[in-house]
Nucleic acid binder design. Structure first.
Length: 917
RNA sequence: GCUCGGAUGGUGGAAUGGUAGACACGCAAGACUUAAAAUCUUGUGGCCAUUAUAGGCUGUGCGGGUUCAAGUCCCGCUCCGAGUACCA
């Protein structure tokens, strides 16, 4: 009987479905283990061979943990809201729900062929009302919460209302959009609407006027992580800055906890570093400056020590301070400059690094020297960071230096011996000078000393600033979660929890309305209660993906996002596998969202993802043919230098081991039907290059085709064999024959022709050794995600057992269990061939026994001064003294030592003897 | 600019400081076959030597260092990749 993978895989996939093999429930008698993949956005193109890489890795880990006796939660679902389905809807009129449903069906078909051990009964879809009910619910909780900096947690807003009525803001330390102070009398004297407006300053989900990334082409705002280099990540459309009223989440309140939490989780250093940079904590001070017209404003600096080097101030063009600080005669020039910068898109601003700016006409007073410092306006200062204003110290900041040089402003050196004739001295080292009370201190001493003095004289205060901004949470799009919000008297109110889910309404078109409202403005009767209008924005993509791991724990619960019982059992994700592209998006929002739910006691763990592994990207490997210019003749790779040729991409699926299937090529396109070929050794050799996997490069490999040709088990093994999991690497179907041959080799250990040849004899020493070498290596490798080397270990073991002609049940059954996480279908089949019932998934992971690896005699490598190695064999129980004596005995009889007397003999546990001459 | 990775045969890649190149692809030779494909066996870093064997030298991007011993540790470079970017 041959290894008929098609039949085997079909049979066992069916068996798993019929027997609900992968269904899990809470079971307090077993330890839990939660393995999660980042759920996919089901795109129209379907899966290519790169997508399942992480899924296979996590599936192997899940199956392994299960064999080790863990109760493994391994779910899958779809991040189903998103822009592509909506863009497609705009072009074709096709409802995004239909497109999404079709895409999901296609994804599921492809996933099923690979043999994953998902518990599909727990599937979630972010666009399903039963699911987004809880996204909306979480939003309502955020709306009704504020963040207390003293308690370091979110608290219900009604507490705050009570405190305001009793004591105003006195003694409170709250996360807010802007600082506010008022008394209880002032609060109590305000109208309902005024009070609501004040509360907006503190809510964790709030409406705020902020600078947003606006994409005119997409007609929506985007979050910072959805923009890169001034272009939208999806689609690559230009993005500009606009001030708009948007829903925001007060992520910044959690900045410190998001930073601290990184120390407690097992993520790669580079990913943690990326998050640290994104959060961007910097310690410094806010300082008050007074302008000549008595208007006071604040700046933020991390270099308070350089206060005596300030020769000018700079405001961001978008800053509200600009209006306050512009003198009358400078007004036209300033207006002109501000208009100009507004017109530039973010991308143009990045591209244009030239120095520009305008004098405001007013001056600030230096807090220590009383000197007049000119105030300038320039686009190198950002409105969104700090206070949108800086004190410029050209001697010790390169940007200030460039500005000062350009506008001929004075530059003062503050550090002894520094040379600032060509560039600023930015390093935080040296001895201070020209700095009044700071003179003689090192920079490290001067920074805190300067802030102490500033605080003492009430000129400012210590402040920690974060780069992390609040997340903009509304999108002017159709295909997303509707906000559970309606407006009364212009103020937003949330729906009652009992009114959830608020379902996405139907619209006639997916475009903005004629008056520029978002698409939901087209919905009929989009009102609630006594005709109050509902919110027209929808939530962004990250809304639905921020708590999906909690929902998998209890996916059908209609009473809660997750029950306390389920949450207390599953707790958190033990292993999360996904790509780095979510480092500053999903993985920040999700941690924030979970911390908020932790404060509400909905989630019992503060960090959602204990361990995270990033799988590398799979790149494409394109093939080329070379057409001689002006002809329809193609020349083989190594002969192309003799002709003037144009390289042309050729479909990698008609190339095998870089050899072109000429007949298939002629059929590939009518253009090539009559193509002529100049061959080498009777073959057409193609060139190749590593490029992104994409249709236009003709290098997309579909997993279905691989499964059809080689089987799912071969695909799984080969994806792992390609290289280290976390490394990016090109897909190259060449070489897949190697792992396929391995599986056949395993098959042939069981079957000779049609006969099952198994023996109940005691295994030999060599057989046990081959097996236990495998068990040791594979156990270690799975724990360390070193799957490529474990596939090698299997091949070595199969080769050893083949040459030993091993057909012992005792050996083969343990081999099959080891193989089960990697190649589940063939393992099931062989598990049954061994006479077992049920599924191999219920077997036990074999235990490694060191005894079997011990040898009778060891070869020792003998080296001299670390060179020229010889080999001597010693019994396993030989002592170091015996080995040393044996080596020295050769001193005169062999050429080894050239008659020299050894100074030292070093015997290393690794079976090396080094003789120092 | 900053941060983090990486550099090992023709290719993908192995190597807790201890015989570098496991395993696989490719290639070459052989077996089977009328032939090819498939399959199996053997060889395969480079250079040198030899009828053959045994062998010698060299070798992990470059230059130093530590060590009995360095792909691995330390210092200084070069190149490549990823992320991030006027964050005061």
């Amino acid at each position: 009987m041959d290894y008929n993978f098609r039949e085997i895989e079909k049979r066992w996939q069916q068996y798993w479905v019929e027997n609900k093999t992968y269904k899990v429930t809470e079971d307090s008698s077993k330890p839990k283990f939660y393995v999660l993949d980042m759920f996919p956005y089901p795109s129209g193109a379907g899966l290519h061979v790169g997508h399942p890489l992480g899924y296979i890795a996590s599936d192997i880990y899940s199956r392994y943990k299960r064999l080790q006796g863990f109760n493994v939660l391994h779910p899958m679902g779809y991040d189903a809201y998103g822009l592509p389905a909506e863009q497609y809807a705009i072009q074709t009129g096709q409802h995004p729900a239909v497109t999404t449903e079709n895409n999901i069906r296609r994804y599921r078909e492809q996933l099923d062929k690979i043999g994953f051990s998902y518990d599909w009964s727990r599937e979630v879809r972010t666009c399903d009302p039963d699911y987004y009910k809880w996204t909306q619910w979480a939003f309502i909780q955020m709306f009704h919460s504020y963040y207390c900096n003293q308690a370091k947690q979110a608290r219900p807003i009604y507490e705050l209302i009570e405190v305001f009525a009793e004591q105003g803001t006195a003694g409170l330390d709250l996360a807010s959009t802007e600082p506010m102070e008022f008394t209880a009398e002032e609060w109590n004297g305000k109208t309902e609407k005024e009070q609501q407006e004040i509360l907006m300053n503190y809510r964790i989900a709030y409406l705020g006027d902020t600078m947003v990334n606006w994409s005119p082409d997409l007609g929506t705002v985007l979050a910072n992580d959805e923009v890169s280099e001034g272009l939208s990540i999806r689609g690559g459309y230009p993005v500009e800055q606009r001030r708009m009223r948007q829903w925001c989440l007060r992520v910044s309140a959690y900045a410190e906890r998001l930073l601290e939490g990184l120390d407690s989780i097992d993520w790669s250093d580079s990913l943690k570093e990326t998050q640290r940079n994104w959060i961007g904590r910097s310690e410094g001070a806010v300082m008050h400056f007074t302008a000549s017209n008595d208007f006071t404003f604040d700046i933020f600096t991390t270099r308070a020590d350089t206060i005596f080097g300030v020769t000018f101030m700079v405001l961001a063009p978008e800053s509200e301070l600009v209006d306050q600080l512009t003198s009358e005669e400078q007004c036209p020039a300033v207006k002109d400059y501000v208009e100009k910068t507004k017109k530039k898109t973010e991308r143009e601003r990045i591209a244009d690094r030239s120095v520009s700016g305008v004098f405001s006409g007013s001056y600030a007073i230096h807090p220590f020297t009383g000197e007049q410092i000119p105030i300038w306006i320039s686009d190198y200062v950002l409105a969104g960071y700090g206070t949108g204003a800086i004190m410029a110290v050209p001697g010790h900041d390169s940007r200030d230096y460039a500005f000062a040089k350009h506008f001929n402003l004075p530059i003062i050196p503050l550090i002894e011996g520094c040379d600032i004739s060509e560039e600023s001295f930015d390093a935080k080292e040296g001895i201070m000078m020209n700095s009044g009370f700071l003179n003689g201190m090192t920079v490290k001493q001067a920074i805190p000393a300067a802030i102490d003095e500033v605080e003492k004289q009430r000129l400012g205060y210590r402040k920690i600033n974060y780069r992390l901004r609040d997340a903009i949470f509304s999108r002017q799009r159709y295909w997303g979660e509707p906000f559970p919000v309606y407006y009364k008297d212009g103020m937003p109110y949330t729906l009652d929890e009992s009114e959830l889910p608020l379902e996405l309404p139907e619209v006639d078109k997916y475009l903005p309305t004629e008056t520029g409202e978002p698409p939901l403005g087209r919905a009929k009767n989009w009102t609630i209660k006594e005709g109050y209008p509902l919110e027209l924005n929808t939530m962004p993509g990250f809304a639905g993906s921020s708590a999906y791991y909690l929902r998998y724990m209890d996916p059908h619960n209609s009473e809660a996002l997750v029950s306390e019982k389920a949450n207390n059992y599953w707790r958190d994700v033990d292993l999360y596998i996904g790509g780095t592209e979510h480092a500053t998006g999903h993985l920040v929002y999700s941690r924030f969202w979970n911390k908020f739910l932790f404060d509400l006691s909905v989630s019992c763990e503060e960090e959602p993802f204990k361990k995270l592994v990033n799988q590398g990207m799979i790149q494409g490997r394109s093939n080329f043919v070379y057409r001689i210019k002006g002809t329809n003749t193609f020349v083989s790779y190594n002969l192309k230098e003799e002709h003037d040729v144009t390289p042309i991409h050729v479909d990698v699926n008609i190339v095998h081991n870089d050899l072109l299937d000429i007949d298939a090529f002629r059929e590939w396109s009518p253009e090539y039907t009559s193509a002529e070929f100049i061959l080498e050794n009777g073959k057409y050799v193609c060139g190749w290059a590593i490029e992104k996997m994409s249709k236009s490069m003709y290098n997309v490999v579909n997993p279905d085709d691989i499964v059809e040709k080689y089987g799912a088990d071969t695909l799984r093994l080969y994806e792992m064999f390609l290289g280290p999991l976390e490394q990016s690497k090109p897909w190259d179907t060449n070489g897949i024959d190697g792992v396929h041959r391995f599986l056949r080799k395993v098959w042939n250990l069981f079957y000779k022709g049609d006969d099952l040849l198994l023996s109940d004899e005691e295994p030999s020493k060599d057989e046990l050794k081959a097996l236990h070498k495998l068990i040791k290596k594979v156990t270690y490798d799975i724990e360390h995600f070193s799957y490529n080397t474990s596939v090698s270990a299997f091949m070595i073991c199969a080769n050893d057992l083949t040459s030993l002609k091993c057909n012992k049940r005792a050996i083969l059954s343990e081999l099959v269990v080891c193989l089960a996480p990697f190649a589940p279908h063939i393992s099931e089949e062989l598990w049954h061939a061994l006479g077992n019932d049920g599924s191999v998934c219920d077997a036990e992971w074999p235990e490694f026994n060191e005894e079997y690896l011990k040898e009778d005699a060891f070869p020792y490598a003998i080296s001299f001064n670390g060179k020229s190695r010889y080999v001597l064999e010693f019994p396993a129980d030989a002592t170091n003294e015996e080995i040393e004596a044996a080596v020295l005995a050769h001193q005169n009889s062999q050429k080894w030592m050239d008659g020299k007397t050894p100074k030292k003999v070093i015997i290393v546990p690794k079976k090396i003897v080094n003789v120092v001459l």
